[in-house]
Simulated assay, not measured.
Amino acid sequence: MLDRIVGMDSTEGPSLFPLHRCKTLHLVRHAQGIHNVEGEKNHDAYLSHALFDAHLTPLGWDQVHNLHNHVHACGLAKKVDLVIVSPLLRTMQTAVGVFGGESYVDGVDAPPLMIANAGNSDHPAISSLNCPPFIAVETCREHLGVHPCDKRRSVSEYRHLFPAIDFSLIESDDDILWTAETREANEDVAARGMKFINWLWTRKEKEIAVVTHSGFLFHTLQSFGNNCHPSVKKEIGKHFSNCELRSMVLVDRCMIGSDCSTTNYPGKIPSGLDLPNNVAHEKHPEKEVANSI
């Protein structure tokens, strides 16, 4: 099913698609979290409740600042219509740090994207001025279950920490998706990823940043590119580093989306005759003969 949505027609050459059947996705894995550091030392650390809803490390914030500078330097910051973020501390800290405004100043008539020192950080507040909207979506969370680092806080607590993020799509205040007994299977993560991709076609935005997790990205993207050259498929599906950004084009090959083009122009305005040369010849072959005499 995924290959019916995204992919090349063959490995022999490029494919061509109408622009309004495409969306540009800027996929970002969160910056280094405390669970990444501890898990690198000992995989069993992922079972530690001390890593509940893991936040960014100081190095992680440095990675965020570097990516923030990059998206502004290359002009991407002005192109993004929407930022979708997994509702966990490390992803929301990354999202607002990369795509948010500068330091928040009291008295500004706009809620901050993040309050000062949110989530065990020493980071100043981040402004929501001149930024795209941010929306939290649970479908793009990391593997669910067992690892406390992947369990979220209540939405009520997040709303206090991240006032300008929209949490309206999250149905439950508490985390009812995470369970201590069962870790979500890889194929279930991939299926959830497909559900998320299909949901993107219900959005009107054409250029979307998604700030999410390594496992979610890897298992979702592994299902794509089967009709591409092997090097392209490898490029699509390889693991993301902390705070890595990759831009990709999502193609609607099955008429899932319904948006009309905003750049196409119908022509013949004002209306008039404009038969192509070959069509005119087929319609009036006698004129061709007359012209040759």
Score class of each variant (00 low, 15 high):
residue 211 V to Q: 04
residue 176 I to E: 11
residue 103 S to E: 14
residue 120 N to W: 13
residue 133 P to Q: 07
residue 213 H to M: 03
residue 235 E to V: 00
residue 49 H to T: 13
residue 19 L to N: 11
residue 31 A to E: 00
residue 68 H to C: 12
residue 199 W to K: 12
residue 283 K to D: 05
residue 123 H to K: 10
residue 2 L to I: 08
residue 284 H to V: 11
residue 238 K to P: 00
residue 214 S to P: 04
residue 14 P to M: 10
residue 204 K to Q: 13
residue 2 L to P: 07
residue 98 V to Y: 02
residue 103 S to V: 14
residue 262 T to W: 10
residue 248 M to C: 07
residue 25 L to W: 09
residue 120 N to I: 13
residue 120 N to D: 15
residue 158 Y to A: 01
residue 138 E to P: 02
residue 281 H to K: 13
residue 230 P to G: 01
residue 68 H to Y: 11
residue 89 L to E: 11
residue 192 R to T: 06
residue 221 L to E: 00
residue 1 M to L: 10
residue 282 E to D: 14
residue 171 E to C: 07
residue 262 T to S: 15
residue 117 N to M: 07
residue 289 V to D: 05
residue 146 V to F: 00
residue 140 C to G: 05
residue 113 L to W: 11
residue 201 W to M: 12
residue 244 E to D: 02
residue 124 P to C: 02
residue 8 M to F: 15
residue 201 W to E: 07
residue 74 C to E: 14
residue 265 Y to P: 00
residue 59 L to K: 12
residue 66 N to A: 14
residue 260 C to H: 15
residue 264 N to K: 10
residue 113 L to D: 11
residue 217 L to G: 04
residue 261 S to W: 03
residue 137 V to T: 00
residue 47 L to Q: 06
residue 121 S to D: 04
residue 287 K to G: 13
residue 201 W to G: 12
residue 252 D to S: 13
